[in-house]
């Protein structure tokens, strides 16, 4: 444990970086997924194409995605951020689309019948009703991101993965375990917090 006590600030910085990476990627993914989801949810053709493409993107393993993006984006935080965001986007997109699809026809019809404008219907009726699905998607996206962000250390994204990877390189067991434990704890804490939100 001596290494840990001496390097608390490094560990803290890695943790902070990890959270930042996940948060920023989530935000970026959400900014794309929400409008795109609203746009395609009621257009069957687009919907199939966009969801199919994003499902494909999501099933590409993290390391493969990074390997393919490095030649295009280079190394570093920004590249990692973009890669991670493109990883979380499909999850959020699917959640938005299924959430919007789940809104009962009768409810949408009633909203139209009472004279809600399309925008009012979206914000006051459809999105609130899609919220449970969006939260479920958020939970999956966060778990995916915490995990993928660990690997992002490999392309210079920083975060807790740095401890694991350098630890593996140096055969430094304590460093590996600290990194692995913290990243697991982060994943579980985020999951518990989001589950609470889902129930509320």
């Amino acid at each position: 444990m001596r290494w840990t006590w001496r390097n608390l600030d490094t560990i803290g910085a890695a943790l902070g970086e990890h959270v930042l990476l996940v948060g920023a990627a989530l935000l970026l993914a959400g900014v794309v997924a929400l409008p795109l989801g609203v746009l395609v949810a009621r257009r069957p053709l687009w919907r199939a194409a966009v969801l199919g493409a994003s499902a494909g993107l999501y099933s590409i393993p993290t390391l493969a995605l990074f390997a393919l993006l490095v030649p295009l984006l280079g190394l570093g935080f920004r590249a990692a951020l973009l890669a991670l965001a493109s990883y979380a986007m499909p999850v959020l997109l699917r959640a938005v689309v299924t959430g919007l699809e789940g809104v009962a026809l009768a409810v949408r019809e009633a909203a139209d019948g009472m004279g809600l404008t399309p925008r009012q219907k979206l914000w006051q009726v459809e999105l609130p009703l899609a919220l449970p699905s969006v939260l479920a998607g958020l939970r999956v996206a966060v778990a995916t991101l915490v995990s993928a962000a660990t690997v992002a250390a490999y392309i210079g994204g920083g975060g807790l993965g740095v401890l694991i990877l350098t630890g593996l390189d140096q055969g430094h067991t304590e460093k590996i375990l600290v990194g692995a434990t913290l990243v697991c704890a982060l994943a579980l804490a985020a999951d518990v917090a989001l589950r609470r939100m889902q129930r509320a």
Partner: peptide, 17 residues
Amino acid sequence: GVLRTLPSLAVLAALLP
């Protein structure tokens, strides 16, 4: 559920010791 939430790289790395 917990095991599924754990990042793959962390699981791999944690087994090393």
